[in-house]
Design a protein around this nucleic acid. Sequence first.
DNA 1: CACAATGCTATTTTATGTGTAGCATGATAC
DNA 2: GTATCATGCTACACATAAAATAGCATTGTG
Lengths: 118, 118
Amino acid sequence: MSAPVPGKPVRGSKTGVPIMALFDLLGRTWAMGVVWQLQEGPCTFRSLQRKCENISPSILNSRLKDLKEAAIVERTLDGYRLTEWGETLIALLRPFGAWSREWAQKVFAFTDSEVAQR
Amino acid sequence: MSAPVPGKPVRGSKTGVPIMALFDLLGRTWAMGVVWQLQEGPCTFRSLQRKCENISPSILNSRLKDLKEAAIVERTLDGYRLTEWGETLIALLRPFGAWSREWAQKVFAFTDSEVAQR
DNA sequence: CACAATGCTATTTTATGTGTAGCATGATAC
DNA sequence: GTATCATGCTACACATAAAATAGCATTGTG
């Protein structure tokens, strides 16, 4: 599938409203996970693959392609890293970490230690 | 597909880390779009369907099921609405609206008026 | 009672994602 | 210099999820 571009119809959305294009992009499997893993710094293809629980190379490559076209990720000699746009995006995404831990605790009865170790 | 639950393996993630379970949930087609549309208030099934560009009822129903199990959406006599968890989640999601418009402008050369009308 | 809207379910078709194999390239190790 | 290894992918074949459409039971309205 082609990477979503605001202004053009995207998967599930025909209008191309920017927020829907963004939701389409981030809604693809592992898209947010890849951005999440890149927040700690640049990463090679294989090492990114390992961080993403050995995601299949075809899907990783496809997600990287989407994220590169969206100017969120770029390739360098060190492998892949977040662009400036990627940095501003992960800044918005970061609060989801704490939110998800509280959610796991309160909604799914995770214990403190379960949340801590995960 | 079953709804993702922190602590159990989810689509694409075997560990069940809360953030990955959340990314799995929000990464399903229209999941973020549905939450987004519910931010303005409760909505009936058909009206939600219309707001989501006539998404197919099967996928809407499936997403609502996931979001209900995750305690993000609940059913009331008026139709569906965000729970308290849903409200805290949409608070984190809301900044993506402005981000996506800037992104559309700067990365994809949208004009002010294009962004405004969409 | 006819008619329309609502809230779905079922079914088929198509698009996506998963898993695995493997190959070209470059860096070490001997 | 060649055997070995890691890397960065590509290419399938198979499984799963999403899209599109039809339609039905229920409730409300004139």
